[in-house]
């Protein structure tokens, strides 16, 4: 494995991609969870498939088409749910399936053999090209920069939007920032875990971090570390056993999350029993 990392570009790319995706997970996953935008993120990820297919049809880099569709759907969901009686959930559901259908249509209309779309659907960490690393680095840099730049205001917006409004803070600007950051982040994650499993990578590491930490900075840092760990282990499994990386990462992280919940509950029960027992002692 170490020899492969040293000798093969695809392994080096895989490691860099895992690191970038983990940074994105820590930031975007936290925002999406705290602003309750997880199902919207799922809709955006699936809608981006329309853009990926569009790229194949017209012969340009599919990820740019995906990004265009992802940002477009994010803005649509935000605007329609704010300005009409249609709920965000409904419009998300429509864009979710519409994007997938459009993607399949475009891919089937593309000239030549129909390409294998498995890596876009389930992720393939071992097939990340150097070109992909360049745009993943660019997207991650944008997310990190914007997040650090607006950190304190974003935290306040995520925690208590009503209070932020009452304080006279421009919450619309922060909302736009979030609705643009999420699709950019999703395009980084798609390369690792694919469209279908993106929500899981956005959710699970952050949820594990929330079990362990009580402040936002720590949750973000812990989710990045947890995500790095899962991605590397997923990469190793994916290298030795021929299973898509996304599948390995998500199965592993789900099992760890469930195990941690059980362990935490047992510890809490034990502590509670000790307290009750202690209180009864004369």
């Amino acid at each position: 494995m170490i020899e492969a990392i040293l000798n093969y570009t695809f392994m080096q790319n895989a490691l860099i991609a895992a690191l970038l995706a983990s940074i994105v997970t820590g930031i975007i996953g936290t925002i999406a969870i705290e602003k309750k935008l997880i199902s919207m993120s799922g809709g955006i990820a699936h809608a981006s498939f329309g853009g990926i297919g569009f790229g194949y049809l017209l012969g340009f880099e599919p990820i740019w088409g995906g990004l265009l569709f992802a940002i477009g759907s994010s803005v649509l969901i935000s605007r329609i749910s704010k300005n009409s009686k249609m709920k965000a959930d409904t419009i998300t559901g429509i864009l979710w399936s519409f994007g997938m259908a459009l993607g399949i249509l475009f891919v089937s209309l593309a000239p030549g053999y129909m390409p294998d779309m498995t890596s876009y659907l389930f992720g393939d960490i071992l097939s990340v090209s150097t070109n992909s690393i360049i745009y993943m680095t660019l997207f991650t840099a944008i997310i990190v920069f914007v997040f650090i730049m607006l950190f304190n205001h974003l935290i306040m917006y995520m925690f208590d939007e009503e209070y932020a409004k009452a304080r006279g803070i421009n919450t619309k600007l922060l909302e736009w920032t979030v609705y643009i950051m999420i699709p950019i982040g999703i395009m980084v994650l798609i390369k690792i875990v694919g469209i279908i499993l993106t929500i899981a990578l956005m959710t699970i590491p952050v949820s594990i971090a929330k079990l362990l930490c009580k402040s936002m900075k720590r949750v973000i840092l812990a989710s990045i570390l947890i995500s790095v760990l899962f991605s590397f282990v997923g990469l190793i499994i994916s290298y030795y056993v021929n299973i898509p990386s996304g599948v390995c990462i998500i199965l592993l992280s789900t099992v760890v999350y469930l195990a941690l919940i059980i362990v935490k509950r047992r510890i809490q029960k034990k502590l509670h029993a000790q307290r009750v027992h202690g209180a009864k002692q004369p």
């Binding site: 304190n152 935290i155 009580k214 936002m216």
Partner: peptide, 14 residues
């Protein structure tokens, strides 16, 4: 939400 009392009160000064 992962936020301490001090962090929350601090956000009042933003």
């Amino acid at each position: 939400f992962p936020i301490t009392v001090l962090e929350m009160v601090l956000s009042g000064t933003i």
